[in-house]
């Protein structure tokens, strides 16, 4: 009994001390937070725009540092640069020694390839080119014989990533990481900010976002608008819905901005790696929330290609992902839906 009392007394004292410390520390932290100011960096990278906002008492990071990170990423992952590591892999018959960026992107891509049973596949590059969405300018549509011959090069099972080496089992296999590299870049920049002690930020590259903390001096959550799909490739969009996220990544893949108009037909940029043909379903855009932008970005394309019902079924077994869908109903009306987890973030 006596022992118990002592123990309890100790506990209370410890609690009091703790709360006193918390109060003291909390007060100084509060004082520091109110002094936070926004710093903004914007520019062009990866064929699109980027915008970074971080909250800090002083300027910690400047634009040249960010541009240097992007240029390093380009040297590794850009299929538009003929001398990049990825281009050298595509040109080689057997493979290349990877760097950190290519290795991490390919590793995650292969994981998502397995997880989605091949719906997401970075070896789709030759088909992307043939359908006119790649680096080469094409004026006609591929015929079935061309597609059949290209399919022999497609399939991530033809890739081998062993430690530092990325190898191919078929010489004609080529990879295109455009569906995931933007998300990866967002992570690289976000991690760079965190390494510099930044705790409150938003990083956006071409509509792919990672966010942490709150915005200051208002001390309110950061809000992210999800675009209303536009009818054409140039129209700037309005906001369909707004979410508030304390920490994590939000990315969107849409069928509305990237397509080819061939006569009266819109050719979707989503290509089925198994059939070799472009696929069209009711989904107009998919917004995915995940811990990392590379994960969100990798899955948004796959979910878009799956179609609504398959995508929802997939998400039931992948609790680390939440998603928001804008789609066209059979009567032509545009509507939206989301996973239960996603609704919690809507403002």
């Amino acid at each position: 009994m006596c022992r118990m009392q002592v123990k309890r007394l100790k506990k209370v004292t410890l609690w009091r001390l703790g709360s006193l410390l918390t109060m003291l520390f909390g007060f100084t932290q509060f004082q520091q937070l109110t002094e936070l100011k926004p710093f903004q960096l914007t520019g062009l990278a990866q064929g699109t725009t980027y915008a970074i906002t971080y909250y800090s008492q002083r300027e910690i990071i400047q634009k040249p540092q960010i541009d240097s990170i992007f240029s390093r990423l380009d040297q590794s992952l850009s299929i538009y640069s003929p001398t990049s590591l990825i281009s050298r892999f595509n040109q080689s018959a057997t493979g290349v020694e990877t760097d950190m960026h290519l290795r991490q992107v390919v590793q995650k891509s292969l994981a998502i390839f397995n997880e989605t049973a091949g719906v997401f596949d970075i070896t789709v590059h030759p088909l992307v080119n043939a359908w006119g969405f790649g680096t080469e300018k094409v004026t006609t549509l591929p015929d079935s014989a061309t597609i059949k011959s290209l399919l022999a090069c497609v399939g991530s099972e033809k890739l081998r990533l062993n430690q530092n080496w990325l190898r191919k089992t078929v010489p004609c296999t080529r990879i295109d990481v455009n569906g995931i590299a933007q998300g990866y870049s967002v992570d690289v920049i976000a991690n760079y900010l965190e390494k510099h002690g930044i705790r409150n930020y938003m990083v956006e590259v071409g509509g792919e976002i990672r966010v942490k903390g709150r915005k200051y001096p208002q001390n309110t959550p950061m809000s992210i608008g999800i675009e209303t799909p536009t009818k054409n490739e140039f129209e700037s969009a309005s906001i369909q819905t707004v979410i508030e996220v304390n920490q994590g990544a939000v990315t969107t893949s849409g069928n509305y901005r990237k397509y080819r108009q061939v006569g009266p037909n819109r050719i979707s940029h989503i290509i089925n790696p198994k059939t070799g043909y472009t696929s069209q379903n009711e989904l107009i855009s998919v917004t995915v929330m995940a811990h990392d932008a590379i994960i969100a970005d990798g899955y948004d394309n796959a979910l878009l290609a799956m179609g609504l019902s398959q995508a929802l079924a997939f998400l039931k077994h992948h609790q680390n992902l939440d998603a928001y869908f804008i789609y066209q109903k059979s009567n032509g009306a545009i509507t939206d839906t989301a996973t239960a987890g996603f609704y919690k973030f809507m403002r």
């Binding site: 064929g47 699109t48 725009t49 915008a51 906002t53 933007q182 938003m202 956006e204 071409g206 509509g207 792919e208 976002i209 966010v211 915005k215 950061m222 809000s223 992210i224 608008g225 999800i226 675009e227 799909p229 490739e233 700037s236 969009a237 309005s238 906001i239 707004v242 939000v250 990315t251 969107t252 893949s253 849409g254 069928n255 509305y256 901005r257 990237k258 855009s285 917004t287």
Partner: peptide, 14 residues
């Protein structure tokens, strides 16, 4: 449109 939010997610705008 952007004035009301801090960031916008959407299909990549070229």
């Amino acid at each position: 449109a952007k004035g009301t939010v801090d960031g916008v997610t959407g299909a990549t705008l070229a």
